[in-house]
Design a protein around this nucleic acid. Structure first.
Lengths: 341, 341
DNA sequence: CTGAAAGCGCTTACAG
DNA sequence: CTGAAAGCGCTTACAG
């Protein structure tokens, strides 16, 4: 036999028709048990595998999901945001569990998305994972909805966002970690991270932060908010800017762990001690958070649950079942960086 | 028009035959320029995308590579070895650059590999990336070769390994970092990591380590080698074991950064100072290496180059071109953890 | 329980 | 330069 075996080869060997082979292989109940066993044995022996291209073409689905991963500040570097890598792992596992393959594509938010996996029938639906200017990408989300593409997005869950989104409770997280800082005796708490609707996740964290301040009877000083994207460098720059401004502060809540780690570096370089002089908290609970010195207090996102929920929701969408945006609860992971003075 | 547009729909609208549409879309030179333009315009307007299943079925290839990722000590946790994540990123980019899609699958080394992507025509070839007992997996490599599967493997490059491998120069790396430790005045250098042919990469690093010791006129004390897998926990355990043994040492070369970081923790817990009491070096240069305190000296593997080389080699194999195993040079990344006493 | 027939949407000789 | 024909390897009504 030259080349790979086909179902027709098996049919010949088993003395049945090709459709019967197809039925037996997929466990159709209407195949004689003995016939099935014979067919399975031959298939095994020939190392036969169903040709997915043929099968998919006929069945008009692919058994594959696509993960569209976009990140803007790091177009080409190998350093991908660890939080997303953790998500990647959990999404892969969730797919495998449900018998789906996962196609992966890294893209820049600023480019046109190569989101034609579904159109070209390579995937049944798309998971969008990334970080960047929401307002810039919004139009593309609308286009996906318009085209009837099946997709779920990881991000801020807001009523006016096109399509279905899964995200963590950013507001609650921002609130809780700030409340914790207050409970540790901090009063002048800076926020490092973009705080506008361009970056809804950060904005929600910021709003939660402000809520907690208000509850504590503290006011949010505009001088204590500095824009930052989710990279260490950006966090370093933001903390430096904060120091330059000169407004006193005794704590920093960074909108992501990467920002927090960069900020800690900047503080240490200026001779400030964490947490003695400045408490620092982050968001995400990336592995690095427990390794910096002191350990970084942060808001933990449940990536395992998130990955599973993204996949489940997308599959529901694909199957025409109702699917809604959902928010996942967060919890605090407290370490040395926010100890009381 | 209901459902997605097909090439036949376009043919009708353009007043040509369906094969002409197919030719025009793939830029065949034997299509009238005006006809082509008309067809392209219609295709654009209908948001037409070639059905990959049909195309692949006909052309008998998939334009997709599969990345089979296996890791054994962490079957289900979300914490994936950061070094492999870095490789993942570079492989994805290398694929995208060459117009290939990447299918990803996480597996346990101990299970049967679900390596039938090529058999089922979902991928044209497979990249194997992972860490575990080589002797255990060897049989499966042999089977892949036997079946004529196109694959490349990241790992130790050794003549008797089935198939084609790409790996870094582990021996050189182990040699250079040990020579560096010696140059910093260290004389009793421990090695943490498996040092047997079950783990060829570690073994090569160990051999390089011994070479450097010999060159320096130092002998390798068996009491200073402790087995460890590439996790922090394992590194922590190994360092603890080393301390329990009681043989004096003034430096540790860990076979991976994760081991080194775990070992550093164990040392600090016992009140030992790095580098004053014990210098510590690792291997991989994961992002964490520059964040621990003090920064971890290590051997840097060029993951960008590695990813590109893996993809290039696999594509050569797929195209029936000659392809050979290759070794990538390494370089040292020196930080505070190996400063002179 | 099984087979003959049709067809998924392309690509590629083969003719002209 | 273009079209009619065949066929990639399956799955699924339709008959029996």
């Amino acid at each position: 036999m030259k080349g790979k075996a086909t179902s027709l080869d098996i049919a010949h060997l088993a003395g049945v028709s090709q459709p019967t082979v197809s039925r037996a292989l997929r466990g159709s109940p209407m195949v004689n048990e003995e016939t099935r066993k014979r067919i399975l044995a031959i298939a095994e022996q020939l190392n036969y595998k169903v040709d997915k291209n043929a099968s998919n073409l006929r069945r008009q689905h692919s058994g594959t999901l696509a993960l569209l991963f976009f990140e803007d500040p790091t177009p080409d570097e190998s350093a991908i945001n660890p939080f997303f890598l953790s998500m990647l792992g959990s999404i892969t596992r969730a797919c495998a569990l449900r018998g789906y393959d996962l196609l992966i594509s890294f893209q820049q938010l600023s480019n046109d998305w190569q989101a034609d996996y579904e159109d070209s029938k390579k995937a049944d639906g798309i998971i969008l994972l990334g970080y960047g200017d929401y307002l810039e990408s919004r139009g593309r989300l609308e286009k996906l909805v318009e085209q009837g593409t099946h997709f779920v997005r990881w991000g801020a869950v807001q009523p006016d966002t096109p399509g279905v989104s899964i995200g963590c409770d950013n507001t609650q997280g921002g609130h809780d970690i700030t409340a914790h800082l207050v409970s540790q005796g901090r009063r002048r708490i800076a926020f490092l991270g973009h705080a506008s609707n361009h970056y809804p996740e950060f904005f929600e964290r910021y709003l939660g932060h402000r809520q907690a301040l208000e509850t504590a009877g503290l006011s949010a000083d505009p001088a204590l908010q500095v824009d930052a994207l989710t990279t260490e460098q950006s966090g370093h720059d933001a903390a430096t800017e904060l120091l330059v401004r000169g407004a006193p502060f005794d704590a920093i809540f960074a909108a992501s762990d990467l920002i927090a780690v960069g900020a800690m570096k900047a503080l240490l370089e200026r001779g400030l001690r964490v947490p003695d002089d400045v408490a620092v908290a982050g968001f995400d609970d990336i592995p690095l958070a427990s390794f910096v010195n002191p350990g970084l207090s942060t808001v933990q996102q449940d990536t395992k649950r998130a990955g599973a929920l993204l996949v489940e929701t997308l599959l529901a969408l694909i199957n025409g079942e109702p699917a809604e945006s959902q928010t996942i609860p967060v919890k605090l992971a407290l370490r040395g960086s926010t100890a009381a003075k």
